[in-house]
Design a protein around this nucleic acid. Sequence first.
DNA 1: CTGTTAGCGCGTTCAC
DNA 2: GTGAACGCGCTAACAG
Lengths: 342, 342
Amino acid sequence: MSLGAKAAKIEDVARAAGVSIMSVSRALRGVDGVSDATRSRIADLAAEMGYVPSRLAGSLAQATTNLVCISVPTLFDAVFAEIIGGMRETLSHAGLETIIETSDYDQSREAAWVERMITWSPAALVLSDVDHTRETRDLLRSANIPVMELWDVADDPIDMSVGLDHRSVGYEMGVHLVQLGYTRPAYVGIASGRDRRSEKRMSGIAEAFASNALFLTPIHVEAAPSFEAGFEGARVALAKDPVPDVLCFLNDHLAFGGLMACEAAGINVPQDIGIAGFNGLNITNVLPRRLTTSSTPRRLMGKTAARMLVAAVRGVRTDRRVVMPVTLDPGATTRHRPVPTD
Amino acid sequence: MSLGAKAAKIEDVARAAGVSIMSVSRALRGVDGVSDATRSRIADLAAEMGYVPSRLAGSLAQATTNLVCISVPTLFDAVFAEIIGGMRETLSHAGLETIIETSDYDQSREAAWVERMITWSPAALVLSDVDHTRETRDLLRSANIPVMELWDVADDPIDMSVGLDHRSVGYEMGVHLVQLGYTRPAYVGIASGRDRRSEKRMSGIAEAFASNALFLTPIHVEAAPSFEAGFEGARVALAKDPVPDVLCFLNDHLAFGGLMACEAAGINVPQDIGIAGFNGLNITNVLPRRLTTSSTPRRLMGKTAARMLVAAVRGVRTDRRVVMPVTLDPGATTRHRPVPTD
DNA sequence: CTGTTAGCGCGTTCAC
DNA sequence: GTGAACGCGCTAACAG
């Protein structure tokens, strides 16, 4: 305990207790094979000596860790924070520790991270993307540890995948907007390539409109996904000729920024223009009018993924692909359009 | 590489290269003592064999890891995500890996986490709070590893501390509001005890008003810090008699919720009531009128802390306490009050 | 229920 | 520039 003293090791505790090292090991880990009397005596002594077991040594001897490494694109997005929150409960309950990384939507960063994590012999790996470099896929497949791909559903998962069918989500929103009578839709996202899922949703929306011979105008802002990006994207959209009659945003945060841009420009929503978001984030709960959006089950997704991971870590294989349901939430930022009379 | 084959170890690479284990170790770590020729030959061979070094073994042998364990109250708050973002750059540049935990403002959870992390022999530990159990403090002090306390500045840091003087920040805002002529202030926070820093700011504001014989009405919502909490808190405040003339919120998110509540209630800001937030979050950039708030240097705080940590890990001790500056940002949600004429 | 032996995969320390 | 022995702190497998 004192500064000069070396940290106590299992051997010191054993000597102090007058037992073998193995008895201490068993006693402290709660493994069978120690009488209750000696177990509690050892526990007291260990606490008194300030003994801190070394997981490095323990894990090396057991050739496994309880580490689950999770990579998400960003933490500046309640979405991934909520997914992680959903996973954590289940994981920590199962005695698994989590390591979080943000890849910032950068494939090569994720690849480098995987290479580093692998050296820790993790119990499992979680990736929040489905597009990986060939090397990453090979590395993970050969590493032979459970791998979960989140948020999107991979066609051919490395191992397991739990997520949304982003294209379908977009398509359903598109169909809904077509039914409302919108004819000049625009999609506001961020600079191309950064968020592949956003692009899948956009293509889904585009397809729905294309079926009706209508064209979706893509607007990509050079910025991180944020309120400001939505604000800026809406400004660009409103400057188009002809002005779009409905704006679909990458997510609710951008949609909110768009709402503010419309307000600033003196344009009424939904009278003059429709606004649609994605996710059903809690900011929508305090807005003057409910946002039209698609609600995603973030916590449940995390929980589902975590359960599958825990099972996999214990050697039980479950599903390979799970597609989570998404609910279309028609709000008050879109409405039926009068039939154009031209 | 194939599924049945055992993973290659350093010994296998050594045999394949016709050199000793030590040459492989030196070659792969970039340590002196290997000719360039053999080094590159070994590197190629290792890559070819899919050799993945074991950090467990490596760290055990070296008795240190490159792990920096970080505990934050929550990730559902851009504040901590930004602080972490600021730290990460510097840390990863120095070859340090980060492990993130969310304590959910729970001291006992943090304490349990510290006990678990300590077993990994981390290079450093970061806590985003200054109130810890006695056991935690003792454990950390005796563990003899760099410890950083963030966001708040501890009077007597366990080791190092970088943060804000929350009480002063509140006091300055209070003085500003007093000068504007507000006389019936209220503070909207979350259920008592969950966020100590919020309470420090509140007491600072209260002190400023008290100096002018004015009383700050505390309003605590039973909820997580969120847009909704601010909305609800504002509703409660507006129902008071007399109605407050200025609402100070725990942070900008709650303040935004409050703005929405005022709008929903048909109350004009700042004509009928003033609104003040805290942090200077980016949502304020898209609002129709600039929010009166105190801007905090989150990224810089993270960077500063990370630099001190890197130095400490390398054995260089710097400052023990660093108080970061906060800027009062008078916005358009507060304004000069006419002098009461009674 | 308890102890003994033999590693886990690598890095340090010295020798050559 | 290179290599052999030993140890890091702990646990699995077996013996008693």
